[in-house]
């Protein structure tokens, strides 16, 4: 099977064995021939969130999603590219400092547990106009909404507003999640509602 990778110096055609091929397996096979091909991966098991790339312009989890002949693999858009498929994600973790902390109360319930499915794959960040403008990201808002559910509602909403929630999110509705979290219903709208309730 032959596919294309958008490398630092331009597109490169790579050929790997046919058969059951995830995007990540294709990249690992390609790296045997091209040892300086740069990409990230961690657990190979859909849990660590590090192997996100774009295939034909769509966000894909490398270890989960399939690659077909002729497709084009590129780095996650919206982020500075370091090399090949490796992007600079350091700004995302820095924002997480703004997430307020509360002691656990009760057991893991539906809404709180659902948000915990986030694997930080950053697929939602790639599309985000706020992130492009140097402000918040859907993944930060997700952690803030979780903190709101933990009892830190006003602090969490203040942090979200400071990161641009009320400037952009009501009209955008563009968040897409790789693991099935309904970001608009579960994160953005509850935060926007809370922001309009607070004085």
């Amino acid at each position: 099977m032959t596919f294309l990778v958008l490398r630092a110096n331009g597109p490169v055609e790579l050929t790997v064995p046919d058969g059951d091929t995830t995007i990540l397996q294709a990249l690992l096979d390609a790296q045997e021939q091209v040892p300086d091909l740069a990409f990230r991966y961690g657990c190979r098991n859909e849990r660590c969130g590090t192997c996100t790339v774009e295939v034909d312009g769509q966000r894909r989890l490398g270890c989960r999603d399939r690659l077909r002949a002729g497709q084009v693999v590129g780095p996650l858009s919206g982020f500075p590219v370091i090399k090949d498929l490796v992007v600079d994600r350091s700004r995302v973790a820095e924002q997480l400092r703004s997430v307020p902390v509360r002691p656990a109360v009760g057991t893991a319930d539906g809404a709180w547990a659902s948000l915990g499915r986030c694997i930080d794959c950053l697929a939602c960040v790639a599309d985000c106009p706020l992130f492009a403008a140097g402000r918040g990201t859907p993944v930060t808002f997700l952690k803030l909404q979780r903190a709101a559910l933990e009892g830190a509602r006003s602090e969490a909403v203040d942090a979200a507003v400071a990161l641009g929630l009320t400037d952009a999110c009501a009209d955008c509705r563009g968040c897409r999640c790789s693991v099935g979290i309904r970001l608009i219903d579960e994160v953005i709208d509850p935060l926007l509602d809370a922001a309009s309730d607070l004085p």
Partner: peptide
């Protein structure tokens, strides 16, 4: 057990560290 297995534990441990400036 935790609802999202290690994801929940790792996030909590991260918060313990990252909340300190």
């Amino acid at each position: 057990a935790h609802a999202n297995r290690g994801l929940d534990v790792a996030w909590a441990a991260s918060r313990q560290a990252l909340r300190h400036e």
